[in-house]
């Protein structure tokens, strides 16, 4: 087990380094120049040159990367070229919002998706299955931003049930936090719920016809126990995999929803920093997202062993 963890951490480190190189080169391949963006449209070449020197952009790429990596190792991602604020501070302010939104949305997605999936599998060929499948088809085909705009229009503006935008920190006032975050989480969660519903249904349909489920019924177990203890429990591996992938995606890509509801999350930060060619911020954001992916994947892999005893963690690389 320890050996396995060590191996995974080593793998993670390599992934992080590779990701940092890719983003470092990628950002610099973009057209545009932070010095130009800082100096303004009509700046003279000498000023621009001075700014470039100040930012270290006049040095060769490998030297720039090593300086960036060296600082990053000590936890210092430098200062934003657009705002002059420390990058750490900017990420520290926005990351919690994004994580909270992602977890809240995921909780809604898991609850709704798994319930609908189980219902569809149990009531196969009858109206609850049609309802559950119809819901997920609709949720998958309608773009999130459009549902978001509609929701703001009707639920917020016309009915006034939810605020149209804004954010209150969880530590400040949990009820207000919920008030502001519920609608965005709902919108974001629904499309993810659709995917979970489909996977749960497919997986459950398979398990419910398995021999051991029949054996469970032959013991005299009630249908509730058969469906949950036997059916759902054995379908969890597939569903967990999907949830893991989705959670990673949510941290990286709540951009649209954050934008629609004007939430001060990382999505907004990413977008702004790309527009201003804010190299330090883009680099840091990508590294944070990569790290989040890695952590989530590791957790999911560990979760597998808890869900299914047949999956044994081995110290060997696959």
């Amino acid at each position: 087990m320890l050996r396995y963890l060590f191996h995974r951490l080593w793998q993670s480190a390599v992934t992080l380094v590779l990701a940092s190189i890719v983003v470092f080169v990628g950002v610099r391949a973009l057209p545009g120049d932070p010095a130009l963006a800082m100096a303004g449209e009509n700046a003279d070449p000498a000023t621009i040159k001075a700014i470039r020197a100040q930012l270290g952009l006049d040095q060769s790429l490998p030297v720039q990367y090593l300086r960036f990596a060296g600082h990053a190792l000590t936890g210092d991602f430098g200062k934003s070229t657009a705002t002059g604020m420390p990058v750490n501070q900017m990420i520290g302010a926005t990351l919690p919002v994004t994580i909270q939104l992602a977890l809240y949305a995921m909780a809604i997605a898991v609850l709704a998706g798994m319930t609908a999936g189980v219902v569809a599998a149990v009531f196969r060929g009858r109206w609850p299955e049609w309802a559950a499948n119809g819901f997920s088809l609709l949720a998958l085909s309608v773009p999130t931003f459009w549902v978001g705009i509609l929701a703001i229009l009707y639920l917020s503006v016309q009915l006034g049930w939810f605020p149209a935008s804004g954010y209150v920190a969880l530590s400040e006032n949990p009820l207000r936090w919920m008030y502001y975050l519920t609608l965005p989480a709902l919108i974001l969660g629904i499309s993810h719920a659709a995917v979970i519903q489909r996977q749960t249904r497919a997986s459950m349909v398979g398990t419910l016809t398995a021999d051991f489920v029949r054996t469970a019924r032959a013991k005299g177990l009630g249908s509730g126990a058969v469906i949950l203890r036997y059916g759902l429990r054995n379908s969890l591996i597939v569903v967990t995999t999907v949830i893991g992938l989705q959670l990673g995606g949510l941290i990286a890509g709540g951009v649209v929803t954050e934008r629609i509801f004007s939430l001060p999350g990382m999505g907004k930060l990413t977008l702004d920093s790309v527009f201003t060619r804010d190299y330090p911020v883009i680099q840091a954001v990508v590294l944070v997202v990569t790290a989040a992916y890695i952590v989530i994947n590791l957790l999911i892999d560990l979760l597998y062993t808890a869900i299914d005893p047949r999956i044994r963690v081995s110290g060997r690389a696959q």
């Binding site: 398995a210 021999d211 051991f212 029949r214 054996t215 036997y230 429990r233 054995n234 299914d308």
Partner: peptide, 16 residues
Amino acid sequence: IGLVPQDPMSNLNPVA
């Protein structure tokens, strides 16, 4: 009525 099913590989719940 008790049942002993056919295939011992597939008739036990793998996660219990």
